[in-house]
């Protein structure tokens, strides 16, 4: 019964993720049509306050949905490495720190604060996974398991770099770190078994 419940929870979690990705996609589509309509009717609209308002509202909508998406992706890890209680605690801590920084220093620092909390927690999970403590599914190889962890961590890093570190000297280094994490995560998630085989072959060759 408990297994069935967990399976159902994971299924709905994936459905919510799909819905969030699609909703964000639709927002980008609608904004494109709006932008097209405006450029046809008011060719210099990007120099007007209407454009600034358009950018501001889209930033707010897109960022809110992205934040929900990142938190949802966080819980998608549940079955492998994350305990649901830990997840809830880190989410609350991330949102609270974001809120605090928003009041004190503005939106950019709020993004950096909440994404940093999530990213650091991903790092903690990754280290825990690599040193082999408290791994819940023993069937998969450690590299395969770390795939989605590294991938989801990269999203936090990229959102932090794009949304929070604008024109900061650390923006590009953080962005490249996010890109490397993202690609490594995708390779491990999609081609985990082949990667593991390559690693094993490489190590057996280097040992012999």
């Amino acid at each position: 019964m408990a297994n069935l419940k967990r399976e159902l929870f994971e299924f709905y979690l994936v459905m919510v993720t799909v819905l969030l990705f699609s909703s964000l996609g639709i927002i980008f589509l609608v904004s494109t049509f709006y932008s097209w309509y405006m450029s046809l009717n008011y060719p210099y609209w990007t120099n007007t306050p209407v454009y600034l308002e358009y950018v501001r509202s889209l930033n707010v909508i897109a960022f809110s949905l992205t934040l929900i998406l990142i938190i949802t992706l966080f819980f998608c890890l549940e079955k492998r490495v994350l305990r649901i209680r830990e997840g809830v605690l880190v989410t609350i801590f991330s949102l609270l720190s974001g809120f605090l920084f928003w009041i004190l220093n503005g939106v950019s620092q709020a993004i950096v604060a909440s994404m940093s909390v999530i990213f650091l927690f991903y790092l903690y999970l990754l280290i825990k996974l690599l040193v082999g403590k408290d791994i819940r599914s023993e069937k998969m190889h450690i590299l395969e398991k770390s795939g989605s962890l590294v991938l989801h961590a990269s999203y936090a890093l990229i959102v932090m770099s794009v949304g929070g570190l604008n024109e900061h000297p650390l923006q590009i280094p953080f962005f490249w770190a996010g890109t490397i994490f993202c690609l490594a995560g995708k390779m491990l998630s999609f081609y985990g078994r082949s990667t593991v085989k390559c690693f094993k072959r490489f190590f057996s060759l280097s040992q012999s």
Binding site: V14, T17, F21, S22, G25, L29, S35, V55
Partner: peptide, 28 residues
């Protein structure tokens, strides 16, 4: 220049988001 919400960038991200939705839907 103001490029982040420009149409081509928007639709490219939109496409990536839809393919991300596919990849996640594909789990089931």
């Amino acid at each position: 220049e103001s490029w982040w919400w420009s149409p081509k960038i928007n639709v490219s991200i939109m496409m990536w988001l839809f393919y991300s939705a596919y990849i996640h839907m594909r789990i089931y």
